[in-house]
C-alpha cells in the first residue's frame, strides 16, 4: 500500500501522507472487528543511495530488516532521472508472522532527489525522524564516500550525518587508506560509526576468540606473537586490516599479509603462531571453514558470505559504543600506514 507522489517533499505533507496510510490500514480493522495491524517502530533508519536502481535494492533491504528492527525507514535515492528536485511517497511495509492473524506494519518513506538537490534533503529528513528514538544513517551513496567526491555530495553527507545517532558505511571496494581516513574523521567528531567490512568478520572472529576462553588451555593467547592474514585482493582490503589489527593489538604481534587463491573474495586464511603452536583458520571449501591447531584439534564450521540484510541486522543490534571495532580501526590505521 503506497501513497501518491508528494511534491514538494515537505515534512508536513509527508507526515500527513503517513497519517492517511494508517487510517486506511485501520479501516480493515473496523471491517474485521479485531486488531489486524500492529504498528511497530524502534528507530529511524535513513538510507541514502546513488545506485542506478533508484533505491529499489535499498527498499528491499529495509523491508527485510523490519522483521528484526522495526523502524521508520527512509530511502533517499539520488538519481539524475528523478522527475523533480525532491519528491516523496509513503508506504507501509507489512508482513504477517507465520501462523499469526495480525500483520506487523512499519512505515517507509521514499524520497527521490536529483544529484544537485540531495544536499537540500537534510531539512526534510530532520522533520521526519521518529520522536525520541535513535536515528541510524546508512550511507550507500558511493560518490559521497569517495575521497574525490563532489562538494555537493560531501555537503549532503555532512548535513545528513549530523542528524544521525550512528553512521553505517560499507568500505568494501574502497581504497583502505581513504576508508580509514573517513571513519577516523567521524570518530574524531564524536560520532558512532560502523563499517560492514568489520561486521563481515564476526564469523571469523568468534571461533578464534572462543579458542582462548578455556582457562585450562596451556598455551595462552599472550604467547602468540605472529599473525598472518591471507586474502584474494592485490592489496590488503579493509577486512584483512581489521582482522590483523584486532588479533595483533593485545600482544603487539608481528603482522604479515599475503595474497592467496581460494574461494570467493576477502579473507582466505588467518594464522596465529606462538613458539610452540600454530593455529590456522581457513576456508577449506566454498561453504566451510576449518579451525585447526598444530596440537591436533580440528573443528569445521559452515561458512557463507553474510547478506547485506544479515550484516545490517547485526549492526543495528549494536546500539552504543563498540570498543572492539574502535580498537581494531586504530590498529588498522597503524598497519596501513
Amino acid at each position: 500500500m503506497s501513497s501518491a507522489i508528494i511534491f514538494p517533499a515537505q515534512p508536513e505533507q509527508i507526515l500527513k501522507g503517513l497519517g492517511k496510510l494508517w487510517t486506511s490500514l485501520g479501516e480493515e480493522e473496523k471491517h474485521q472487528g479485531r486488531p489486524t495491524v500492529l504498528r511497530a517502530c524502534a528507530m529511524t533508519l535513513i538510507v541514502a543511495t546513488d545506485e542506478p536502481d533508484a533505491g529499489f535494492a535499498a527498499s528491499q533491504t529495509i523491508s527485510e530488516l523490519m522483521h528484526e528492527h522495526p523502524a521508520r525507514g527512509i530511502v533517499l535515492a539520488v538519481s539524475k532521472d528523478a522527475e523533480n528536485d525532491l519528491q516523496a511517497r509513503v508506504l507501509a511495509q507489512c508482513w504477517k508472522p507465520f501462523g499469526k492473524a495480525q500483520q506487523i506494519c512499519c512505515e517507509q518513506i521514499e524520497i527521490t532527489a536529483r544529484p544537485g538537490s540531495w544536499q537540500n534533503a537534510a531539512p526534510t529528513l530532520a522533520g521526519l525522524t521518529a520522536a525520541d528514538l535513535p536515528v541510524i544513517f546508512w550511507c550507500r551513496h558511493k560518490g559521497a564516500l569517495q575521497k574525490d567526491g563532489s562538494p555537493g555530495d560531501k555537503a549532503a553527507l555532512e548535513a545528513i550525518s549530523k542528524l544521525a545517532t550512528k553512521l553505517v558505511i560499507d568500505t568494501n571496494g574502497m581504497v583502505a587508506s581513504d576508508a580509514i581516513e573517513l571513519l577516523t574523521k567521524w570518530q574524531g567528531e564524536g560520532k558512532l560509526v560502523a563499517d560492514l567490512e568489520w561486521t563481515r568478520l564476526t564469523p571469523w572472529r568468534e571461533p578464534l576468540a572462543h579458542l582462548f576462553d578455556n582457562p585450562a588451555r596451556e598455551n595462552k593467547f599472550a604467547n602468540f606473537n605472529y599473525v598472518e592474514v591471507e586474502h584474494r585482493e592485490e592489496k590488503p582490503p579493509m577486512q584483512a586490516l581489521y582482522l590483523a589489527g584486532w588479533l595483533s593489538a593485545p600482544n603487539k604481534a608481528k603482522v604479515a599479509f599475503k595474497r592467496a587463491s581460494g574461494y570467493g573474495s576477502g579473507i582466505q586464511r588467518v594464522s596465529l603462531r606462538s613458539d610452540i603452536e600454530a593455529i590456522e583458520f581457513e576456508r577449506t571449501s566454498p561453504d566451510c571453514v576449518t579451525l585447526w591447531s598444530s596440537s591436533g584439534r580440528e573443528r569445521k564450521y559452515t561458512f557463507s558470505q553474510p547478506s547485506i540484510t544479515a550484516l545490517m541486522t547485526e549492526e543495528l543490534s549494536v546500539a552504543g559504543f563498540d570498543p572492539a571495532f574502535t580498537a581494531a580501526l586504530a590498529q588498522a590505521r597503524e598497519l596501513s600506514a
Binding site: 568468534e206 576468540a209 582457562p215 585450562a216 593485545p250
Partner: peptide, 20 residues
C-alpha cells in the same frame, strides 16, 4: 566471570561464554 580475561572477547557481538 571466567577466571581469566580473554582479550579477544566481544560481548557486543559474540554469544555468551560457557566454560568447557
Amino acid at each position: 566471570p571466567l577466571t581469566e580475561v580473554n582479550p579477544l572477547q566481544d560481548s557486543l557481538r559474540f554469544a555468551r561464554r560457557v566454560p568447557p
